[in-house]
Design a protein around this nucleic acid. Structure first.
Length: 607
DNA sequence: TTAGGGTTAG
């Protein structure tokens, strides 16, 4: 029996409306279309051609038909789901044909009913990646018109959310998550977990928190990994108390925190824990041990790095020894953190000793090690050593990156060697390493330090021309330079320019401006900046107090300076070396007497 | 499936 036979046989039976060309605009056909498969021979031939993937023969056979009508007939005639999927895919990919959403939903329902989940996932993936973009509500609505099976529909929607996430369409995933309940679809942890992960990765912590709350409200199972993602999001948002609450919640729900949970929280405290953060982070280490959760290398690395950045290398070294006593081997991350901390503490010999120690243990210094060391030398004004190390790294043929160049450019600009700094930028360009805004900021700071306002202006113009986006640091550098030139009032006007560029001034910005006014001999104007800062929701920090106290001291307004010192102590801010070395000493010289709590009193007898 | 280290501004 030839194909021509089938064509002749059925061509005559077809209603005119089905005789479209294959690539005509798809339309959903009505149920009044005659059944093409009433002839068992035709049905069996089609079935055979599809299952054997004889697509050219099938194409020949159904040439006169609209593929959408043909698909609808296949669906109505209860063909097996594999055949229907086979035809669906073939017609879509080889005939560039977009079937109506309704047909896709019907195919999906069929596949779910047959428990062919990988095929559902694959079809949805293609639909999301390559298909026409439908609104979430149109997909949900169409699905409901095709099937009233809540379970099957929920599986499809769950997999749809996952496809949105996997194809970078997080907004659509979130909308689907939000609207699923309205349509009676129940999502699972399989889609919510990757969605949460994506949300946290994009820094949308508030959204992540809402998703978590909604998961709990909708009684969607939350597993250990999902709790860890939620805790990570809260930690990154600085909501450490809430992160701890979630850890308690998980225990109540019978899920015990693991080392990842604790490591995430410890990292949160190290980076955003505020006053006494390292005490709290260390307490968490002890707590996890008491709870029978063993710390690992990452736990110690996180704490060691935290202590180093908190100017407490002593505590970091103690943990370094503790981890080794417990049988853990420090790795490259441990050493890099410690070397950075030791340089920051001015302990160059110990830092170099650690580098030797890591090499002895078979750990090769990596580019981060070198960046830390170049930066360390530079901060200690050991510019010759910084340059020698950089040259050494170049000779070794290690992969230098943009941070290496930024570090070494900054070292040169701080040493007042602007010609070399500019030459280094040329060198990085020749190595196809693209300068970042930090590269420009390092150069800009160098020019201003040199008093070369003209070169700084030219660089700013170049940045504008090249559409380099200026950032908060660029403005802080510009504001600082203006203040140092005695143009504090002009510098304040840059705050408006920042606002136009949607840049939010930081503590550093305000502190620079306050220091500018104090340097101008106008601490009262500095206080107005403080008020502006507080209005923006930023409380004065230790630097703010140091700047203001110094400003009042220099004007011999010691009562005001003392009031600020007391205010700082009452707020629980711990005076730092600058407070003691420069300010308090100056006040004591001028007749103030310190007491055991750090407060100062006017010595009326000796004054 | 989840967690750690390097640059620029006070």
């Amino acid at each position: 029996m030839s194909i021509t036979y089938f064509r002749r046989l059925h061509y005559s039976r077809l209603p005119l409306r089905c005789l479209h060309t294959a690539n005509s605009e798809p339309t959903s056909t009505s149920t009044s279309t005659p059944n093409l498969f009433s002839d068992p021979l035709f049905k069996s031939k089609v079935s055979e051609l599809i299952s054997n993937q004889h697509w050219s023969q099938l194409k020949d056979l159904i040439k006169p038909f609209n593929p959408t009508s043909f698909l609808e007939q296949l669906l109505d005639s209860r063909f097996d789901s594999s055949s229907i999927l086979g035809f669906f895919r073939w017609s879509q990919f080889y005939q560039v044909y977009h079937h109506p959403l309704e047909h896709l939903c019907r195919v999906l329902v069929l596949l779910v009913n047959d428990k062919k989940y990988p095929k559902v996932r694959s079809l949805l993936h293609d639909f999301v990646k390559n298909g026409k973009t439908y609104t979430v509500s149109s997909v949900f609505h169409t699905l409901l018109t095709c099937s009233d099976n809540v379970c099957a529909n929920s599986i499809i929607v769950d997999m749809l959310v996952l496809s949105y996430v996997n194809n970078g369409k997080l907004d659509l995933a979130l909308e689907a998550f939000r609207r699923a309940g309205d349509y009676g679809f129940k999502l699972s942890v399989f889609s919510c977990k990757p969605m949460l992960k994506g949300v946290v990765k994009e820094g949308k912590f508030e959204v992540g928190e809402l998703v978590y709350k909604e998961m709990i409200r909708r009684r969607i199972e939350v597993d250990l990994y999902t709790f860890n993602i939620v805790i990570n999001g809260l930690c990154k948002a600085g909501k450490l108390n809430k992160a701890r609450d979630v850890m308690e919640d998980m225990k109540v729900r019978g899920i015990m925190p693991n080392e990842v949970t604790y490591n995430t929280l410890i990292d949160g405290y190290c980076k955003r824990g505020g006053d006494g953060k390292m005490y709290k982070a260390d307490a968490l280490l002890r707590e996890m041990m008491e709870q029978g959760v063993s710390p690992n290398e990452r736990t110690y690395n996180t704490l060691i790095d935290g202590f180093c950045k908190d100017d407490n290398v002593g505590a970091a070294i103690k943990l370094f020894k503790e981890m080794q006593l417990q049988g853990m081997r420090p790795d490259i991350v441990t050493f890099n953190s410690l070397i950075d901390g030791l340089f920051g503490d001015g302990k160059v010999d110990e830092a170099l000793g650690l580098r030797a120690e890591m090499i002895r243990l078979g750990l090769e210094p990596n580019i981060r090690t070198y960046n830390v060391m170049i930066n360390g030398f530079s901060k200690l004004k050991m510019f010759r050593e910084a340059k020698e190390l950089f040259d050494d790294v170049m000779k070794q043929g290690l992969d230098l990156n943009v941070l290496t160049f930024n570090t070494v450019i900054d070292a040169h600009s701080k040493a007042g060697k602007m010609e070399e700094a500019v030459a280094l930028r040329e060198l990085m360009l020749s190595k196809l390493i693209c300068p970042t805004i930090s590269t420009y900021n390092c150069l800009l700071g160098g020019y201003y330090r040199d008093g070369n306002v003209g070169a700084a202006k030219e660089l700013l113009e170049e940045m504008e021309k090249k559409s380099v986006m200026t950032d908060l640091v660029t403005y802080n550098i510009r504001i600082d330079a203006m203040c140092k030139r005695g143009e504090s009032r002009k510098a304040v006007r840059l705050l408006d320019e920042m606002s136009e560029k949607r840049l939010v001034p930081s503590h550093v910005t305000y502190n620079i401006l306050m220091a500018g006014y104090c340097q101008d001999g106008n601490p009262k104007a500095a206080v107005t900046i403080r008020k502006r800062m507080e209005k923006e929701g930023k409380q004065p920090n230790i630097v703010t107090y140091n700047v203001l106290i110094k400003g009042f001291c220099q004007k011999d307004k010691l009562e005001e300076a003392n009031a600020l010192l007391n205010e700082m102590l009452e707020k629980g801010l711990v005076p730092n070396r600058i407070t003691y070395d420069i300010i308090r000493e100056e006040m004591i010289d001028k007749g103030f007497v310190p007491d055991i709590d750090g407060h100062l009193y006017k010595d009326t007898v000796n004054c």
